[in-house]
Amino acid sequence: MSEALKKLSGEGVSIWLDDISRERLRTGNLERLVEDKEVVGVTSNPTIFAKALSKGDAYDGQVRDLAVRGVDVEEAVRAITTYDIRWGADVLRGVYDRTGGLDGRVSIEVDPRLAHDTEKTTAEAKALWWMVDRPNVYIKIPATEAGLPSITAAIAEGISVNVTLIFSLERYGKVIDAYFEGLEQARAAGRDLTRISSVASFFVSRVDTEIDKRLDKAGSDAAKALRSKAGVANARLAYKLYEEKFASDRWQALKDAGARPQRPLWASTGVKDPNLPDTLYVDQLVAPGTVNTMPEATLDAEADHGNPTGDTVTPNYADAQAHMDALKDAGVDYDDVVRVLEEEGVEKFEQSWKELLDTVDGELKSKAGA
């Protein structure tokens, strides 16, 4: 067992793997990561599934059966992805039980093409919740303006939600409010709030990628000195907002009724710039009650040479705010940055979903003719 990973867990950070595949499941790799590397949760997204489907033969048997049945591509994709999520949830059920439902969670995303359609996103969330039929699943709903009412509606129905694609502090505040509203509706309907859970996925490395591009374009030495620090600063200020929101009277009333806090989850934690330390977005974002979902390469790096040194978030609020202020003085338009990142995030997942559909369509046609 890695001492770095043990220490990270001891600091109150839940280590989740940002990856799932049929191959990982059938070889027992996920079980080994739970046993050896402190992994207590799994996230997925359309890009991860598209990659998994394009490699190896792990899905051949199921695809062949779907082809024989004449299932259309949309239904086939849902059958394939929910199969993996159910399997992953079963692998992690022991963690779920041991932690009282805190961890042991597996996330699956609504069709990203619905990101700007509230009614369809809500309907899709309900359908996925029913299809997976595991208490330890999270349904991923994007934090778009249209997604906010869907978050509330899903929580109100007793569906546990992983809110994804959060970039801005303002939007994060609205996500927390949407969670509160959903819990209040669930309470009014007589639902057991102890059975409802949520995380809020705040993206990190993509913030640096976009802001560093703008700083490089500015070209001054002062601008370049601000590179590669915004992602961490933004996330630290998100945790500050989390502490403030969950210290409110509104939250206390929900907590008294049995509600669980919506934990901040650090997503997009693999570094994009090879000049940066590969454990940057892990060691610099250690705070109690958080989740860090890591690509396997980042997990391995943290296990090998990570250096978590206690809480690296709450003592650094002032520095984080000073950095964001300096970016503004350097001409970086924060509101435009987060707008671009949200639009690109939705677009990238839509492209991956199309790639997934095309891959499965090709496989269905191939197997049907075999």
Rank of each mutant, 00 (worst) to 15 (best):
I155Y: 01
T194N: 11
D36L: 06
R195T: 15
A115C: 12
V199P: 02
A127P: 01
V338H: 02
A189T: 12
D19T: 06
L5M: 07
N136I: 10
R22I: 00
L285E: 07
I141A: 05
A4F: 08
T298C: 06
D278W: 03
L364C: 05
A230F: 09
V95A: 01
V346T: 10
A178N: 11
Q262G: 00
L341H: 09
L265D: 05
S205C: 11
G258T: 09
P261E: 04
D72H: 03
I151A: 09
T194K: 15
V132N: 12
L364Y: 04
L193E: 13
N45Q: 04
L33Y: 07
S352G: 12
E3V: 11
K255E: 15
K217L: 12
T298I: 06
L17G: 05
E75W: 02
K217I: 08
V199L: 02
G310P: 04
L165M: 09
E344Y: 02
A257P: 03
S352I: 05
S168A: 14
S352Q: 01
E124I: 09
L17A: 13
I176S: 09
T118S: 15
P112S: 08
R22Q: 13
E343P: 02
V137Y: 09
K126C: 02
S21Y: 11
G158T: 10
E3N: 10
R191S: 02
K224F: 02
A153S: 10
K255V: 01
D57F: 09
G28A: 06
L30V: 14
T359Y: 04
K255I: 02
N292L: 07
D177M: 10
E210N: 08
D57W: 01
D36S: 05
E31Y: 07
A123L: 13
V73I: 07
S14E: 03
A153M: 00
E181P: 00
V95F: 04
A4S: 15
